[in-house]
Design a protein around this nucleic acid. Structure first.
Lengths: 251, 251
DNA sequence: TAGCCTGATATGTCTGACATATAGGATTCG
DNA sequence: CGAATCCTATATGTCAGACATATCAGGCTA
């Protein structure tokens, strides 16, 4: 591992980059222990706080974990799909909100990706997957649900659908796409009528998945996408109204 | 913003979490300036190094940038698609390598997702997109390319293909899926014959995109996926051989 | 008016110290 | 002899104060 640092850039950033590269390259094995902060400080010829800042950067990316005590130190993390999903969701959420991504664009991407899971889900779905789907449908049909609860169950339904494809890499990608949409979906006000429509489509999708009609799966997914866009129309209208009244349209 | 901290957990982590929540919730506007380190230290009742560690955590996630000088400080970053893509690629790469994801699983996910871009790409591709695709094909056909160069061009081709779908959210997702595969693809040894085969499929895909045959696009993509799996077969064989000779099979 | 200079303010870094968690060995008691 | 307890070494977590350095703003000078 290189220990020389350029003098005109942040030391802590360079150190973090050096260690990160070592981890990515596989030079540091998973669960391996990094040298102690004092030793790293000596090796890079910087002070301990500087090393600590570098380590905190890595910790923020879930690349290492730290442990206090005699046998403590910084250890290389096995990046789990779960952790990565969490991270991906917050990143995706921020991306959508900070870049003022249209509802339409986000919905288009999300359903395009979800559509890609259908062929695999059709051949691999197990009874357990179908049970999860039906459980969420039942939940969505219960009366008295707030919009947020309905929306959360909707997300759970789609996550279960993605899980049915049986590919963890795919699931990871989709988690970001689906969950990041939740804040946008939460802006929708679900009437009893629209809920019934969505539940019906979910049920039809589940049926198609169970009884084996890929074409029907596609058609239902497309219908769901179209209906979501329709529901989202009011958001666009509201936003434009607000934009006109307030700070003007986007440049 | 809350300023009370639990005494039994890392202060720097709690502070980072507090500020992150504020950013995600939109309480801190993009390009807005955070209080100075000294002020944050006073507000949270901790020392400046502790605040700095918290800020470094946020900087590592591209949530803030810092600037020295009189008008300097920490500013909320507009999370750009580019930055997020970079981040996503390293995360995806680590996920694949650290979790020993099969070549098959990764390829399956990648082509499933890429397949999802085809309908959009078919209707939206511009002459400029097609030119990019053809440029990469030409590059791939040149003699004397190293395997890595060929592989890089392959990635560029697929990125251009995804771009043709004209959806930035989709592009962001796909960048992670496609680029993270590069280390795995680099393990393939491309013979002249396999290169010719790939170039031919790329050309056919580009033609289908240009002349408007979505079905042909799908078919070609599937052929490409199948051929990639075929090429990857040797990797699996090599890995199994190494596994048997060395540390044994996975538990 | 144009250019330079200086001070204020902020981050980047260093030094040294203390607090605290933890494992493992030494000690003591049943 | 065994088990519970204490002690100590080592590591991270935190603090305080200081200096170095980058940068802008405003005043000063030619």
């Amino acid at each position: 591992m290189k220990t020389e640092l350029e003098s005109d850039r942040d030391y802590s950033q360079q150190i973090a980059q050096t260690i990160r590269d070592a981890i990515v390259a596989g030079d540091l094995p998973v669960d391996g222990r990094l040298p102690s902060e004092a030793e790293l400080a000596a090796r890079f010829n910087v002070s301990r706080p500087t090393v600590r800042e570098a380590l905190k950067r890595l910790a923020a990316q879930n690349l290492i974990r730290t442990q206090r005590g005699a046998t403590g130190g910084a250890f290389v993390n096995r990046l789990s799909f779960e952790q990565a999903q969490e991270h991906m969701v917050t990143t995706a959420t921020l991306l959508l909100s900070m870049n003022r991504v249209d509802f339409e664009t986000a919905v288009e991407a999300r359903f395009a990706l979800e559509r890609a899971c259908l062929p695999l889900a059709c051949t691999r779905r197990t009874p357990s997957h179908l049970a999860s789907l039906r459980a969420e449908i039942a939940r969505q049909a219960t009366a008295g649900l707030t919009d947020e609860e309905f929306c959360a169950s909707d997300v759970a339904f789609h996550r279960a659908l993605v899980e049915a494809a049986g590919n963890p890499v795919l699931s990871w990608h989709m988690a970001g796409a689906v969950e990041a949409m939740q804040p946008l979906m939460n802006m929708i006000t679900y009437t009893a009528r629209s809920r019934a429509q969505i539940v019906a489509l979910h049920a039809r999708l589940t049926y198609a998945l169970a009884e084996g009609g890929l074409e029907d799966c596609y058609a239902t997914m497309d219908a769901l996408a179209a209906y979501t866009l329709e529901l989202g129309g009011e958001i666009r209208a509201r936003r434009q109204a607000k934009g006109r009244a307030g700070q003007g349209a986007d440049p």
